[in-house]
Nucleic acid binder design. Structure first.
Lengths: 218, 218
DNA sequence: AAAAGTTTGTCAATGAATTGACAGGATATT
DNA sequence: AATATCCTGTCAATTCATTGACAAACTTTT
């Protein structure tokens, strides 16, 4: 039973498929062909078939794909059939924003606790959960079966906190701190570097402006 | 003077180079070889040289790269030498968090205004800027030379708002709404789909768990 | 029940990105 | 000043990702 490795390029596209299929399902659409989906999503039909086929034959010749079935299958592939308890480290604006984001719960991500090093914030509530001081982190993680930690603290403290999270059995870190974490093999890290994203935007603005200049001169 | 197109794969790596070089600069380090940088950043030296060389010969044989020079050059390539005024649409938790994030200013992104459709929020302040109602959007954009709009509203209204932004001359949209925007050619869109990112994390947790199971059985 | 039309899964071809290798030019050492 | 060492820029090789093409299988129409 040899599982072949799926490339991260493919994984990165799955959430978008999942989203479109969810919308189709909500519209009551039962079936869709790779051709129609490709027009909707603006990608090639070949890529869609290739992607889905990494996980098995979900479609049927002459019919296409059953929307609801495919939606559920992709959800399972993404692990959305499991529940994951998560905590947030850093009760600043961003930490609070993520704690208040209710949609994560719908996908099985359960907001369990929020921590902050600043004692002034202790006791403050985010969606019914009291902000706790960092001293309580270890005990809380062990008592509450925490899989995922969301790191929304400044870069200075992030590496140290990440170590503590690993010591207490975290499986994955969703890292919003602007620093690369160095964790042991087997701990998953997903970085969200907002300023990197903004710089890419900045680059593309500049590039377009230069392109325009060049075109006008020519 | 033919500018060759740089792949987005390369662009996506520039902010990370920029960050590491900034740190080296702050540590007072004057020069670095692709070899040393590759060990620090955990990428191949070949890739580093290849990447930098897209923009011209920044290095010198036998010496390496001058840290400060390279840092500045990459900053310029990313367009960080220009200033961009931005507004935020959606004064919820996330919108406020981004408005309060001071570091963007350091890179030339100036927070000018924030809007929300909910009249209850009007008048509330985010970093000295009053939340304005959507009716004022058009006039404000024209009066304040707005380049970038940050979209932190629910998906339902996002497409419509994006159109309005385009009508009022926005150059780029930093899109946090969970929907694909369809804008005219020449308007830059950078998506930050947080739930997609979380799903990738979820996939990688599941994959690792399955891997573990398989290894134990074998 | 046969014919026409649809659409997948897959193989092969193409294209893009990454890595490896090394000549040549600069620096550092003796 | 000569020699050894270092390190870039670039070409070639390799690996990875995307696209194109089509036989086979199913659905729909006649």
């Amino acid at each position: 039973m040899e599982e072949k490795e799926i490339s991260q390029a493919v994984i990165g596209r799955l959430p978008r498929y999942f989203r479109y299929l969810g919308e189709l399902k909500d519209e009551g659409i039962e079936r869709i062909s790779s051709q129609d989906l490709s027009e909707l999503m603006k990608v090639t039909a070949s890529q869609i078939r290739q992607d889905f086929n990494n996980f098995g034959g979900f479609g049927q010749q002459g019919y296409g794909y059953n929307v609801e079935y495919l939606y559920n299958e992709i959800g399972n592939i993404l692990g959305l059939n499991r529940r994951h308890n998560f905590i947030i480290i850093g009760a600043g604006n961003l930490g609070q924003a993520l704690g208040n984001y209710i949609n994560f719960e719908r996908r099985g991500f359960i907001f369990k606790g929020i921590f902050d090093a600043n004692p002034k914030l202790a006791g403050r509530e985010v969606r019914g959960v009291k902000v706790m001081p960092m001293e309580k982190l270890g005990q809380f993680m062990r008592d509450n079966d925490i899989d995922i930690a969301v790191l929304t603290i400044p870069k200075a403290g992030a590496v140290e906190v990440a170590e503590k999270l690993v010591q207490n059995g975290v499986r994955a870190i969703w890292n919003f701190a602007h620093v690369d974490l160095n964790v042991p093999q087997g701990i998953q890290v997903e970085n969200v570097h907002l300023s990197d994203s903004l710089m890419k935007l900045s680059y593309n603005i500049s590039r377009y402006m230069k392109e325009q200049d060049a075109t006008l001169k020519a």
